[in-house]
C-alpha cells in the first residue's frame, strides 16, 4: 500500500509537512531567543542606566569616582535584588576597577578590549559576550566630554541557556506531535484520494491481463478497452490465419 505511486506521493507530502512544521519551529525558536535576549538585556540595561544616572550626578558635581561613598551600597543592593547578575563594577579612565560587588576585584585592571570598547562607544550601552556571561556597559563622560570611566553589569548565560534548552525541548515535542498527528491524517487522506486512479489502473491491468492465457493470447468476451480488444483480436486472428495459410502451403506440397 505504501509502495508505488501512493507511497511516493505520501513521502513527498509528508516531507513537505516535515519541512514546513520544522522550519516553523526553528523560526519560532530563533524568535524566542531574540525576544528573551531582548527582555533580559532590557532589564540589565535599565539597572545599568539607573546606576549611571546616580554616578552622573556626582560627576556633574565634580566628585571623583573613587570618592563616592554610598555607591558600594547601591551596587550591592542591585546585585542582591537580581540573582542573574554576576558582577557590577565601576571603573575609571585607566580601566582600573574602583567599585565592585566582588571587593577583591577593586584595584585590578579590566581586560584591554573592554576598556577600548568602552571608550569607543560613549553614547550608548555596549555589549560583550564572554565565555561565561554577557557584559553590558555604559561609559561615563566627564562634564567636559572626556571619558571618565564606566559601569558594567555582567550576567550569566546559564539561566538563559537553561530556558533555551527547555524551550527547545518543548518545541521539539510540539514539532513531533504536530507532524505525527497530521501526518497520520494526511496518509489516510491521500490513500482515500488516490484510491480512485489506483482502482482505474488496476481494472485496466486486469482487462489487459485477460488477454493472457497460458501458452497464448485469448480474447475475452467482456472488456471495456474495445479498440485494443479489436486490434489484438485482429492481430491474433491474422497471425492464426497466416499460420493456417502457411500450413496449407506447406501441406499442399
Amino acid at each position: 500500500m505504501f509502495s508505488g505511486l501512493t507511497g511516493r506521493i505520501i513521502i513527498t507530502v509528508v516531507a513537505v509537512l516535515l519541512c514546513a512544521v520544522g522550519l516553523t519551529s526553528l523560526l519560532g525558536y530563533n524568535k524566542y531567543k531574540l525576544a528573551l535576549a531582548n527582555i533580559v538585556e532590557g532589564r540589565f540595561r535599565f539597572v545599568l542606566g539607573d546606576i549611571k544616572n546616580t554616578l552622573d550626578v556626582s560627576v556633574n558635581l565634580g566628585v571623583a569616582l573613587a570618592d563616592l561613598r554610598n555607591l558600594q551600597e547601591l551596587l550591592d543592593r542591585e546585585k542582591t535584588a537580581d540573582d542573574q547578575i554576576q558582577l557590577i563594577e565601576v571603573f575609571d579612565a585607566d580601566g582600573t576597577v574602583v567599585f565592585s560587588t566582588d571587593r577583591s576585584n577593586v584595584g585590578q585592571v579590566l581586560p584591554e578590549d573592554w576598556v577600548q570598547l568602552a571608550f569607543l562607544t560613549t553614547t550608548e550601552a555596549w555589549k560583550l559576550h564572554e565565555e561565561d556571561g554577557h557584559v553590558i556597559g555604559l561609559t561615563l563622560i566627564s562634564s567636559f566630554g572626556a571619558p571618565l570611566g564606566g559601569v558594567i553589569v555582567s550576567y550569566s548565560h546559564a539561566a538563559i541557556d537553561q530556558k533555551l534548552a527547555q524551550i527547545g525541548l518543548d518545541l521539539g515535542q510540539i514539532t513531533v506531535g504536530v507532524i505525527a498527528g497530521y501526518g497520520i491524517v494526511l496518509v489516510f487522506g491521500l490513500i482515500i484520494v488516490l484510491g480512485r486512479p489506483r482502482r482505474q489502473l488496476e481494472s485496466m491491468r486486469q482487462s489487459i491481463g485477460q488477454f493472457l492465457v497460458p501458452g497464448g493470447v485469448a480474447v475475452p468476451s467482456v472488456t471495456d478497452i474495445d479498440h485494443l480488444k479489436v486490434s489484438v483480436k485482429a492481430a491474433v486472428g491474422a497471425i492464426d490465419e497466416a499460420n493456417r495459410k502457411i500450413q496449407e502451403i506447406d501441406g499442399s506440397t
Binding site: 580601566g95 585592571v109 581586560p111 556571561g133
Partner: peptide, 20 residues
Amino acid sequence: IKVSRRTLMTGAAGAALGAA
C-alpha cells in the same frame, strides 16, 4: 567571570591600557 584573564592582565596591562 574573567578572573583568569584579569590575573594575567594586572601586571602588564597598565602601560598598554594607558596608551589606549
